[in-house]
Each structure stands twice: as structure tokens, then as C-alpha cells.
């Protein structure tokens, strides 16, 4: 018989509602609540050997400790699979399911499955890495949720790998994923074009992404008192690239001190950008980070001052989301350093 451990919150463990949400981790050596229904559906080949539970408030307030304790309780039951939920639309419960699934999957290496509503924040955190059965928003959907979960559990227990979002009933992973189709792209493109010409409703393979509108900051009226920083996506770094800034698909940026230099020397800096011929920049890095002319501007008083660090990454192939994350970090530190404006140079 395959051994299953079921994770539920205090309510579904039968310990009480909100008033018991602070209850600490515990374990029962039997199926309880929704687990009983699951047990009937699974039949004799698999059995719920333990129900591990925790109060939702307790979990969210003591996540690290609670996770460690729950992990011990799960491990002690020597399971072949962990099932968590269904948490429906309950956010705290969903996040606890996510946390327990993630920890058990990583530590014990056994198949894990959660069930909750697609709108549950817990689903967002794990849907790309762990299979999550999609449910309705409330326990009125219990029967359907348990039936759908049982079907996936049976499949997992046969040793088949069930990838996140890979089949009906599971919440999609989110994002875009590669797959093979029968026709080559050239043929699909011509098909799509002919359909468009004949006036048919066509289905695009790439929905138009929606971009966030960035409202420009108010202008700087007195440059003579403004502190300006230099930021580039052209990949200028000290020679040797000490921070390992990537030449494409960049994931991080570097901050480099100008050390009172008057200009940037080609034997000290280089561009690691992979998308343009970098010889001219390597010869004169000031043409990417225009330190020389800005020092002049500060000297003649037309500019208040220059921030003593420049920030650099490469914009080459970097997904918009990653770029936005880096930009938020850079902007936060510039703001902290009292910078009034930025000159942003690209490759």
C-alpha cells in the first residue's frame, strides 16, 4: 500500500474555526475531514497514514519554525506522497499548503500535490514548480476538488511524473512554455496570413503584451543644484568583469565607484555587452558613460554634482520583468543617495 500524508489547516482537522487559527503543528494517525472522502476514492492501493495540521495564523506568524516542525511530522510518517488542501480561496491556508509542499518536495524528494483556487496567493507562489489542482473558491466545491485531486494522486502513485500545469484540472504554470507542434513556423505563418487576408478571425500565437505606462518624473528646473547619476544598459564594467555581469539575458547589475576619476580609461573599463561591436566603447568608455563631459559641467557650474557610482547591466535579451526588477533596485538606491536625475545610456 502506498502511504499518503495529508496536510490540512485547523478547521479541516476538526480543531475549530478562526478561534483555533493559532494552533501549533500536530499530527493525527488517520484520515480526517476531506481526507476521508479522498480515502474512499483512492481505494485499497493507497492509504492516508497521517493527517498533519497547523493553524493558519500560527503558520503565517511562525513560518520557518512551523515548516520545520511540519516537515518532521511528515517525515516520521514515511510517506510516498504528500497532498495539501484543498485550500479553496483561503489565502493563509493556501500559503501554508504552498510552504509545506515546497519544503517536503525539496527535502524528501517525494511527489507533492496541492489543491486550491487559481486566485489563491498560495497558487501563485508554487504553480510553476509544483502541480496544483484548481478548485472553486469555497468548500461547496469539496467533492469536485477531491475527485480531481484523487485522479492526479493515482497517476502520481504509479510513478508517472506529473509536471506543473501539464494536464487538465491543474492550474497553468503561468508564463510561456516551449512545445512542439506538427507544422513548421513558416507554414503556420503563411496559413495565418491567408486566413487574415480572407477575413477569417485569426488566432495569434503571441497575445500582445500589455506594458505598464511609465509617467515621466517632473523635470529638473535647476540643474545647477541637481545631483546626476549615470546608469547604462551598455554593459560597461571594470576590466575583468568582477561581478560577472552577463553579456545577454542579464540577471543582475553592478555599481562601480568613479573614484574621483576625470574620465574612464579604456585599459580600466570594458563593455561586456553581447549585442554590439564593443571596440569603440572599449577604446573610449566615456562614450557610453559620459564622465568626461559631466565633470566639465560640474566644474563650470551647469551641473550641481555627480553621483560617485555608476550602475551598469546589459539589456541584451533580458526579459522585461527581470529588467524592471533591476531598475527598481537601482532606483531605490539612487533615491536613498539623494540623486535628483539620471542619464540612462543604452547600447
Amino acid at each position: 500500500m502506498k502511504r499518503i500524508v495529508h496536510y490540512v489547516n485547523q478547521f479541516f482537522a476538526g480543531l475549530g474555526g478562526e478561534e483555533s487559527a493559532g494552533s501549533p503543528p500536530g499530527a493525527l494517525e488517520a484520515a480526517v475531514g476531506p481526507g476521508r472522502l479522498l480515502q474512499t476514492l483512492l481505494g485499497e492501493g493507497a492509504g492516508i497514514v497521517a493527517t498533519v495540521h497547523c493553524g493558519d495564523d500560527h503558520f503565517s506568524e511562525n513560518e520557518e519554525e512551523a515548516t520545520a516542525r511540519l516537515l518532521e511530522l511528515v517525515k516520521a510518517a514515511e510517506p510516498d506522497l504528500l497532498f495539501a488542501g484543498p485550500a479553496f480561496g483561503s489565502g493563509r491556508y493556501g500559503l501554508a499548503c504552498a510552504g509545506v509542499c515546497r519544503a517536503v518536495g525539496a527535502e524528501l524528494g517525494i511527489p507533492v500535490l496541492a489543491a486550491m483556487s487559481p486566485s489563491n496567493p498560495g497558487a501563485d507562489t508554487i504553480r510553476s514548480e509544483i502541480p496544483v489542482v484548481g478548485t472553486g473558491e469555497s468548500s461547496g466545491d469539496m467533492r469536485a476538488a477531491i475527485e480531481a485531486s484523487a485522479a492526479v494522486i493515482v497517476k502520481m502513485l504509479t510513478g508517472e511524473t506529473v509536471a506543473p500545469g501539464s494536464e487538465g484540472g491543474l492550474i497553468p504554470r503561468g508564463g510561456r512554455w516551449n512545445t512542439r507542434v506538427s507544422k513548421r513556423a513558416a507554414e503556420r505563418a503563411v496559413d495565418l496570413l491567408l486566413a487574415k487576408v480572407s477575413g477569417d478571425l485569426v488566432e495569434t500565437e503571441i497575445p500582445l503584451p500589455a506594458f505598464q505606462e511609465v509617467e515621466p518624473a517632473p523635470g529638473i528646473h535647476d540643474l545647477g543644484h541637481a545631483k546626476i547619476a549615470l546608469v547604462t544598459t551598455g554593459g560597461l564594467v571594470p576590466r575583468g568583469n568582477p561581478d560577472g555581469i552577463k553579456s545577454y539575458l542579464s540577471t543582475h547589475f553592478g555599481a562601480y565607484h568613479l573614484e574621483s576619476k576625470e574620465h574612464l580609461a579604456g585599459d580600466e573599463f570594458e563593455s561586456v555587452h553581447g549585442g554590439f561591436f564593443t571596440a569603440a566603447v572599449n577604446d573610449d568608455p566615456n562614450r557610453l558613460i559620459p564622465l568626461d563631459v559631466l565633470r566639465d559641467a560640474v566644474r563650470d557650474g551647469s551641473l550641481g554634482g555627480l553621483h560617485e557610482y555608476f550602475y551598469s547591466t546589459t539589456g541584451n535579451g533580458t526579459p522585461v520583468e527581470t529588467a524592471a526588477d533591476m531598475a527598481r533596485d537601482i532606483a531605490a538606491s539612487l533615491e536613498e543617495d539623494g540623486v535628483d536625475g539620471v542619464i540612462l545610456t543604452s547600447a
Partner: peptide, 18 residues
């Protein structure tokens, strides 16, 4: 009438084109 052929660069839920 146009059809565009494009590779995508999507990280997570972000847009796949710039």
C-alpha cells in the same frame, strides 16, 4: 495585411517582447 514571426523572451509572467 501582416503576419509577424517572432521568438519570445519571456521570464515568468512578464511580456515576451519589448
Amino acid at each position: 495585411r501582416t503576419v509577424l514571426v517572432a521568438k519570445e523572451e519571456s521570464g515568468g509572467d512578464g511580456p515576451s517582447m519589448v
